[in-house]
Design a protein around this nucleic acid. Structure first.
Length: 489
RNA sequence: GUCCCCGUCGUCCAGAGGCCUAGGACGUGGCCCUUUCAAGGCUAAAACACGGGUUCGAAUCCCGUCGGGGACGCCA
C-alpha cells in the first residue's frame, strides 16, 4: 500500500514580495519546512504578487536569497517548477477571475459598482456601530438585467462575497477551536475593479489548486481565516488544517519593526551570524521539542518537530540569545568551514593574504582556534586576528598609562627582548619560563612584563593568551614589536 | 469602538489536576581557574497577572477582571 497524493502533507510558504524576508516570515517558512521534512511532505513556495503597486522582482530575489541562506529548500515553486505551476500569482489571474465568476453564478457573490473605498473612508464610530463602506442592499437590489447592462457599458465593478448568516468555526492546531459570528464579517471583496483578486480569493483558490493539506502561518491571519473557510465552503472544497503561530515581538513587546534593529534575515548574515544558528534560534522562538533541548542541528530540529509543539503566546526576539547560539554553532564548524566562511570578511577588512589559504593555512587555523571561544559573530574573528596579521599602529592609551609608564620599563623590556632573541625553541613553555625568569631576575611580578608585552604586541590590553600569541607571531616579529616600544620609552 | 488570540523567572521554553519546596536555556550577580579578555566549572537571585469558583487537591479545568497582541482595505 503506497501513500496516495492526498495523504502526503503539503504545505506552503506564500510571501508577498513587498519587502525583504524578515525574521517573522523566515520563522513561518521554517516551521512549514520543518513540518514538511518531518512528515515526508512537500514544501511549496508561492509568490503572492497580486499587489502590483507594491510588488517587485527585486523583493522576490531577496526573499529567495533569504530562504536559500537559511537552507530552506522548496520542492515546488520559483526556479524548480512543479505540477501546479506557475507559482507566481500574477501568472494565475485567469484562475481567480473564473473562481469569482463561479461564485457570482452560484449566488455566493455579487457585483459592486460602488467604486473603491480605501481604508479609513469609514472608520468605526466611537459608540461601536460600524458603518460599512459598501451598501449590500443596494448592490443586491440591482436586477440581473441592470447588471448585464452596466457590465456591457464597461462600468468598473468589484465582486464581493456574500457572507451568509451563522457562525464559522475552524479547528486550529495550535489554538483549538476558534469561532466567529458571521455578523462580524463584512462582505469582503474577492475581485477588485482592476481585475486582480484580493488576498482572500487568491490564497484559497491556490491552496485548493495546489492541494494544500495544512496552512501554517502567522497569528495575524486568524481573523482572516473565517473568511477563507467561508470561501472553501462556497467552492465545496475541504478546508485544510490551520496552524496559526504566534508573532515575534521586539524587546518592547511591540511588533517587530525597523526601530528594533535588523529585521531582514540577510541583515543578520551581514552582521556575522551563521544560518544554522539563526535556524536554531528561530525554531525555539515559539516552538519547543518538549524537552530541555536547546542546541539543535537542522536535522535534529526536523526529527523533533511537531505542530503541536508550537506555543500560543507571542515571543520576544532576544539578540543576546541569538549571539549565544551563534557562538555555539561557530564552535561546531570545522576549520575548513571557518576559513571559507571568514575569507570574505578578511578580504573586506583588507587583511586577507593569499598564503593564509596556502602555505600559512595551518598557522591561520591556529590563530582562529585561539579566537573561537571568544567570538560570537564572524566580525570578531577579524578584529581578534588583526594583531596576528599586522603590527599595531597605535597603543591603547589607558594601557600605556597602566603598563608602559613605570620607570625602568624600557630596560625591563630590553632584557626580555634579548632573552627572547636568544631562545632556541620559540614555543609556549620556554617562552613562559623565560619571561618569568627575567621578571624574577629584575625583581618584578611576571604580570608586569606580561601586560607590557601584550600591549607591545597588540596595542591592546586584551588578547588571547600571551604565550600562544608570541609563538604564533614568531621570534622576528616579537623582537621587532618589542624594540619599537622600547624606543619610545 | 467591535471581533479574535494570548497571559509561568528580565527573555525563550518545560509543565497537559497530585511527580512542583515549579525544571532547563539566554542574560545578570558571586566564587573557582587565570597574564588580560573570553571559554569552562560551581553557585545565587529571579515567575505560575489578579479575583472568584470546580475539586480531597489547581500553574494546570470554568467564569470574571486587568494587561498585552492581532484583525477590522478594491494590502498581503
Amino acid at each position: 500500500m503506497t501513500l496516495t497524493g492526498s495523504t502526503i502533507p503539503r504545505v506552503r510558504f506564500a510571501p508577498s514580495p513587498t519587502g525583504y524576508l524578515h525574521v517573522g516570515g523566515a520563522r513561518t517558512a521554517l516551521f512549514n519546512w520543518l513540518f514538511a521534512r518531518r512528515m515526508g511532505g512537500v514544501f511549496v513556495l508561492r509568490i503572492e504578487d497580486t499587489d502590483v503597486e507594491r510588488s517587485s522582482t527585486d523583493m522576490v530575489t531577496g526573499i529567495l536569497d533569504g530562504l536559500s541562506w537559511l537552507g530552506l529548500d522548496w520542492d515546488e515553486g520559483p526556479g524548480v517548477g512543479g505540477p501546479h505551476a506557475p507559482y507566481f500569482q500574477s501568472e494565475r489571474l485567469e484562475l481567480y477571475r473564473a473562481a469569482a465568476a463561479e461564485l457570482v453564478a452560484a449566488g455566493r457573490a455579487y457585483y459592486d459598482f460602488g467604486g473603491p473605498s480605501k481604508r479609513g473612508d469609514a472608520a468605526a464610530d466611537d459608540d461601536g456601530t460600524y458603518e460599512r463602506r459598501y451598501d449590500r442592499d443596494a448592490c443586491l437590489a440591482v436586477s440581473a438585467d441592470e447588471v448585464a447592462r452596466r457590465l456591457a457599458a464597461g462600468e468598473p465593478y468589484a465582486i464581493r462575497f456574500l457572507v451568509p448568516p451563522g457562525e464559522t468555526v475552524f479547528a486550529d492546531l495550535v489554538h483549538g477551536d476558534v469561532r466567529f459570528d458571521n455578523a462580524h464579517i463584512e462582505d469582503f471583496v474577492v475581485l477588485r475593479s482592476d481585475g486582480y483578486p484580493t488576498y482572500h480569493l487568491s490564497v484559497v483558490v491556490d491552496d485548493i489548486a495546489m492541494a494544500m493539506t495544512h496552512v501554517v502561518r502567522g497569528d495575524d491571519h486568524i481573523s482572516n481565516t473565517p473568511k477563507q473557510v467561508l470561501l472553501y465552503q462556497a467552492f465545496g472544497k475541504p478546508v485544510p488544517h490551520f496552524a496559526h503561530v504566534p508573532l515575534i515581538m521586539g524587546a518592547d513587546k511591540k511588533r517587530l519593526s525597523k526601530r528594533h534593529g535588523a529585521t531582514s534575515v540577510m541583515e543578520y548574515e551581514r552582521q556575522g551570524y551563521v544560518p544554522e544558528a539563526m535556524v536554531n534560534f528561530l525554531a525555539l522562538l515559539g516552538w519547543s521539542p518538549g524537552q530541555d533541548l536547546e542546541l539543535l542541528t537542522k536535522d535534529e530540529l526536523v526529527a523533533h518537530f511537531t505542530l503541536e509543539g508550537i506555543s500560543t503566546g507571542n515571543a520576544v526576539f532576544n539578540t543576546e540569545k541569538l549571539d549565544w547560539f551563534n557562538h555555539q554553532h561557530l564552535l561546531k564548524r570545522s576549520d575548513d568551514d571557518l576559513v571559507t566562511l571568514l575569507t570574505p570578511w578578511f578580504e573586506r577588512a583588507g587583511l586577507w593574504q593569499a598564503d593564509l589559504a596556502g602555505a600559512r593555512r595551518g598557522w591561520f587555523v591556529e590563530v582562529l582556534t585561539l579566537l573561537r571561544p571568544r567570538a560570537r559573530r564572524l566580525g570578531e574573528f577579524v578584529d581578534g586576528a588583526r594583531p596576528f596579521l599586522v603590527a599595531p599602529d597605535s597603543y591603547d592609551a589607558d594601557g600605556v598609562a597602566k603598563h608602559l609608564s613605570a620607570p625602568g620599563i624600557g630596560a625591563h623590556l630590553t632584557a626580555l627582548r634579548e632573552a627572547f632573541a636568544g631562545l632556541e625553541a620559540f614555543t609556549e613553555g620556554p617562552l613562559e619560563q623565560t619571561l618569568r625568569a627575567v621578571a624574577e631576575q629584575r625583581g618584578l611580578k611576571a604580570g608586569v612584563l606580561i601586560h607590557a608585552t601584550r600591549l607591545a604586541m597588540t596595542g591592546r590590553t586584551v588578547s588571547p593568551g600571551l604565550f600562544e600569541l608570541l609563538r604564533l607571531l614568531g621570534r622576528d616579529e616579537v623582537v621587532a614589536r618589542l624594540a619599537r616600544v622600547i624606543q619610545t620609552r
